[in-house]
Design a protein around this nucleic acid. Structure first.
Lengths: 138, 138
DNA sequence: ATACAATCTGGAGTTAGCTCCAAGTCAAGA
DNA sequence: TCTTGACTTGGAGCTAACTCCAGATTGTAT
C-alpha cells in the first residue's frame, strides 16, 4: 500500500506519516527496491495503533518508547506491559477531564437555552452565576 | 484572593493565569489600588471554567471568543449558546477518541498480561497480531 | 524515450500554549 | 525606614507535533 493510500485510510498527511517513522512512533516501513514506502498489513497495523493513541492525546515519546522496547524483543514484555498500564491511566484521566467539562458545559447550555427564549441569563443557585462557572454555594 | 492562592487552588502557574487574562480567556481581573491582582469570587469562577475547559482540550481562541461575546452583552446570548453547543460536540468527540483508545489499550493489556506469565505474546484472531494493532480479519 | 506525477530526504519553519526573564513596583515585618 | 519577598509588565524563549520546502529520484502513461 502506498503512503497516499495509508494517508487517506487514516486521515493523516504523508509528512506526518514519515515523521512518525522518523521519530520511531512506528517501526521502519517496508520499501520497494527503489526506496518507495510500501506499507504491509503489519505496517498498517502500527499506523492504526499510533493514530488511535495519538488522537487520544498520547505523547509521541511514549509511543516511541513502546516501539523501542518492542524492537528489543520478548525480554521487554513486562516493561511494555507496565508502559501500557501507565498509558491506560493517562487516557482514563483524559476521559475524566472530558466528563467534567461536559457536565459543566451541559449546565451552561441548559441556562443558555432558557436565555435564548427570554433574552436574559438566569442562573439558579445550584449552577453558578454570570457567564462564569462560579457556584454560589462555595 | 491573591494570584498565588488562585494558582494553588487550580494547579495553574501565575504565568499561565496572567497569560489567560492577557489573551482574553478570562476577563480582566480585579486589582488592588496598587495594581496587584485581587481575584473576586467571580474572577475565580472564570478561572475555574477556563481551567476545566482547557484541561479537556478546548483551544484558547475558542474560550477567548466566548469571553469577547460575553463582554458585548445580552445581545450575544444566542451566539454564545451556539458556541457552547459546538464546544460540547468537540469535547464529546474527544471523549470518543479516549474510549476508542481505551478499548484498543485494554485488548493489548490483556494479551500482555498473559505474556508476562508465559514470556511470549499470543494474539488471538479477534485482537490483532504482533505488537501492532492490526486485526487479522481485515 | 519522454514527460509527468508521486515519492524521497534533510532541514527549516510554524503553531499553540505556555514558561522564563529582567527590571521595576508594591507591601508587610524588624 | 529599610529590607525582603511577592507581584507587575513586556517581551523573548521553549516544547511538542507537525508542516512545508527544495532538489533529487522513482514509477507510469504515452
Amino acid at each position: 500500500m502506498t503512503i497516499k493510500e495509508v494517508c487517506s485510510k487514516f486521515g493523516i498527511s504523508p509528512d506526518t506519516l514519515r515523521y512518525y517513522e522518523r521519530v520511531g512512533v512506528i517501526p521502519e516501513v517496508h520499501r520497494t527496491p527503489g526506496g518507495i514506502r510500501d506499507y504491509t498489513e503489519e505496517d498498517i497495523g502500527w499506523v492504526e495503533t499510533a493514530a488511535c493513541f495519538r488522537s487520544a492525546g498520547m505523547p509521541i515519546d511514549l509511543l516511541a518508547a513502546y516501539v523501542r522496547l518492542y524492537k528489543e524483543g520478548d525480554s521487554t514484555i513486562p516493561e511494555r506491559c507496565e508502559l501500557l498500564r501507565e498509558a491506560r491511566a493517562r487516557i482514563l484521566a483524559e476521559r475524566q477531564k472530558c466528563d467534567d467539562a461536559l457536565a459543566k458545559m451541559d449546565a451552561k447550555i441548559k441556562v443558555y437555552e432558557k436565555a435564548v427564549q427570554t433574552g436574559k441569563l438566569v442562573w439558579d443557585d445550584d449552577q453558578g452565576c454570570c457567564s462564569c462557572g462560579r457556584t454560589k454555594k462555595e
